[in-house]
Design a protein around this nucleic acid. Structure first.
Lengths: 185, 185
DNA sequence: GGCGTATGAATGAAGG
DNA sequence: CCTTCATTCATACGCC
């Protein structure tokens, strides 16, 4: 986590509570990602992004800051954790199959989801649909997966996030069509 | 507790968990450890096992799978939670000590059983003697929590679980003498 | 039959 | 990168 993470405030000792703002979580000293944020991050991960560089992190963080309070370190940690747990999970769900016990057929879901390679992804990110539940997952994702390799390897790929102002314009949506365009390399 | 739901930061809301088992009666969705499983886990914990490695988790899970459905991650989470809550409980005591306590604590049994050095523990695991869900004696949960005072002792110890078919057995024990032998090191 | 507690599951945040 | 701690969410269970 160190390396090039000098400017993310990871080192400071316990920034303690920070009252939020951003109109969202505003609840504690711990980042509480919104669904939209998680969605974007997950999608980036699935696109093959594993360990974003400082620049990537800052960019992502900046774009995601629209959906709520977020810091660069949050993005950094998110990827760290997500990656680690993916591996961890794969490691845990796996074996016991090898063990030859008396019985226990046991179901083993072994899902390999390694999409790495050139990926050009374009998806609409609709802004917060105001108020509460806007669970509408109508996000049309046009994904072009070229998953041919399944190893940890970062091939040059490009992910383009384009957010159109799809919201039905309810209240204060001072959100200017988010245009998240990231280029990993 | 969770006031301040925020306008849009809705919680994950859990995807319904509709599955609810295929009508078999087993409430799938959350692991429900049997008394035997809990007993073994608790005993392992008492023996000094705090954070089993992946290998240990596999073994334990495999052995415990006899008593019912269990996955590796269940064992993993169990130890994580158990240790965390031991600590949490103790810390809460300090807090309540200074502050005017509100309610009577449940059980504040603190027994120091710091196993230092080599420990060889042998205990009997009585058979599950129950076919379906006829839990034998659930009303009487003999939960003996013994908080170990030793924090991070990496001293080599060995715990040997030997399930003899003798003991004050009951009736039909339809499992082949479970021989759970774990060696921590 | 609605709550309060116990606990499984998840994940953010660090440390090493 | 891997492991671990802490906090939180979700749910099963017991109580009134």
């Amino acid at each position: 986590m160190d390396e090039g993470m000098s400017g993310f405030g990871l080192k400071p000792t316990r920034p303690a509570a920070a009252a939020a703002g951003g109109g969202g979580g505003a609840k504690c000293g711990r980042w509480n990602p919104t669904n939209e944020q998680v969605k974007v991050l997950t999608d980036l991960f699935r696109s093959g992004l594993r360990t974003p560089t400082t620049d990537q992190i800052q960019k992502i963080s900046s774009q995601l800051s629209f959906y709520g309070k977020i810091e660069s370190k949050n993005v950094f940690y998110w990827f760290q954790n997500h990656k680690a747990r993916e591996r961890q999970k794969r490691r845990r769900v796996y074996v016991e199959n090898d063990h030859h016990l008396n019985h226990v057929p046991k179901q083993q879901h072994l899902v390999e989801v390694c999409e790495t390679g050139r990926v050009v992804e374009t998806l609409q990110l609709f802004p917060v649909n105001s108020l509460a539940f806007s669970d509408c997952d109508q996000s049309e994702k046009t994904k072009v997966f070229t998953s041919d390799e399944c190893k940890e390897n970062a091939s040059p790929y490009t992910t383009i996030y384009t957010c159109g102002t799809e919201m039905e314009n309810h209240y204060h949506h001072r959100h200017p069509s988010l245009d998240l365009r990231l280029s990993f390399m």
